[in-house]
Every structure is written in C-alpha cells, then in structure tokens.
Amino acid sequence: FKQTINTELTNDGNYKSQFIEMSAIGSGGFGTVFKVKHRLDNKIYAVKKVQFGDFSEEKKQKIFKEVKSLAKLHSDFVVKYYYSWLESNHLYIQMEFCSQSLRSLLKDKHIVFEKQQEDQINLFEYFISCEIFKEILESVQYLHESVPPVIHRDLKPDNILIDLNFTSNRFVKLCDFGLATDHDTDRHTASRYGHTSGVGTIKYMSPEVIHCREYNHKSDIYSLCIIGEELFGINLQA
C-alpha cells in the first residue's frame, strides 16, 4: 500500500469493494473506526471513516493533519498507517488493527486478575502494569525525540492500543494524532508560536494547557502521570 493521501474525490465504491465491514470499534469527534477484512488477502485492518458533511475548511485540515502525522511516523511505537483516500464526501484512513485499548484493559482488569475492583494491586498485576507503562513511556519518548519533536496533546487510555498479536517485540502502540503538533524547540514553549491552547481531554490536560499558558512536550508528561495513576490504582494528588 502506498503511504500517501489520495486527494481526489471519487464515487467508485472503493471502500465497499475492498473491505468487509465487521464491527464498529470506536468513535470520536472526527469519525468512527471500523474493524474490517480485506476481500483479497483476508487480513484484518482498522479503517477510520470520517464524514465531512458541512465541516469547515479548518476542521478538514485538522483531519488531514492526523493522516500526515501518522504517515510520517514509521515505527513500532505507533499504530501502522497504510493508506487513505477521499470517497463520496468521506475520508477513509486504513490502519493496523489492534484488538484492545488501554481503556478496555483497565475496565476488565478486575476480571483478568480475578479480584474485586476495590482490592489492592497484587504482585502479578503490578509486574504487568509496569511492563505496559514502560512501553507507553517509550512510545511517548519516541514522539518527543522525533525530528521535529511531536507533542501528542491527547494522551489517554483510549488512544493507547494493545496489540495482542505481538507482531513486533512490543505490544503497546499510540494512535489518534488528530491533535498532535510539531514542537519547535528553538521557539521554546509558547502557544503563540503555533500551539493551540485548550486542546485535549480535560481529565488528562496539564494545568498550563487548561489555563491557556505556554506549554511544551511536558504537557504529555502530565497526561502520562494521570494514566499511571489509573493503571496502578493510586492517587498522587490525594
């Protein structure tokens, strides 16, 4: 598959002719993600379907930005991007399929570890949680050390995928780069230099982003702290 964006609107039924839609696996402000099977190779993929409708040009550009962000991040640390195309006023983004997110894992953790939700973390759960968190940190480190550095700006359990097929030596991957932005380290931290203030999911947003102050990649670190609290069942702010 070519890692390019087809910018020509078509009406050739490309999506339905290539894929069998199996189930919806997630949705957000910019579209719905479906689990699909390719008709030729029978492989399973994730396809994000965005209906433009009456979207403003600014909102369309944000969506295209997600595609471009994914396309340039070739790494096991992020979900793999294959192809994207415009069709009948929809944008389709074909990506690697991962069967779980950290959110679903946290929701079912008491079942997996055979305990009551109010029980304290045991040794086995602690070991698994440490391994997951280590891989999350490595994935974010990859973004921050990219050239130019990338700030995700919407880190949360929903955007951390778990690849149970172990297609690589890792099983944690980041996704949803609709709010990601390149960070110019020479210009330091200011939102006035192109970083939009007030973006992200409120629970995981750093105070400087919430209050529209200058911020940098450390806003992602704050989000990681909140994710760590959920993963290990602790409250550092108590």
Rank of each mutant, 00 (worst) to 15 (best):
T4W: 01
N6Q: 02
E8W: 01
D12I: 01
G13P: 06
S17V: 01
Q18Y: 02
S23E: 15
A24R: 03
G31Y: 10
V33Y: 09
F34V: 02
F34C: 07
K35N: 01
V36F: 05
H38L: 02
R39Q: 06
L40Q: 14
K43Y: 05
A46G: 07
K48C: 09
Q51I: 06
G53I: 01
F55W: 12
E57S: 10
E58G: 03
K60N: 08
I63R: 05
F64T: 03
V67F: 08
K68L: 12
K72Y: 06
L73V: 03
L73T: 04
H74Q: 14
S75I: 02
D76S: 14
V79Q: 11
V79M: 09
K80D: 10
Y82A: 04
S84I: 01
N89D: 15
N89Y: 07
I93W: 10
M95G: 09
C98H: 08
S99E: 15
S101T: 15
S104H: 08
L106D: 10
D108Y: 13
E114V: 00
K115M: 00
K115V: 00
Q117G: 00
D119T: 01
I121Y: 04
E125K: 01
F127L: 03
S129W: 00
E131D: 04
K134W: 01
E135H: 04
I136K: 01
I136R: 04
I136L: 05
L137F: 08
Q141V: 00
Y142A: 00
E145S: 13
P149W: 09
I151S: 11
R153W: 10
R153S: 13
L155S: 10
N159S: 13
I162W: 05
I162E: 04
L164S: 13
L164W: 09
S168H: 09
V172M: 05
C175D: 08
L179I: 05
A180L: 07
H183S: 07
H183V: 02
T185G: 04
D186S: 13
H188T: 04
A190E: 14
R192C: 13
Y193W: 14
G198R: 15
G198D: 11
V199I: 14
V199E: 14
V199M: 14
G200C: 08
K203A: 14
K203Y: 12
Y204Q: 10
M205T: 03
H211R: 14
H217W: 08
K218I: 02
D220M: 08
I221Q: 11
S223C: 06
S223E: 07
I226G: 09
I227R: 01
I227P: 00
E229M: 15
L231C: 05
N235S: 12
N235Q: 11
A238M: 10
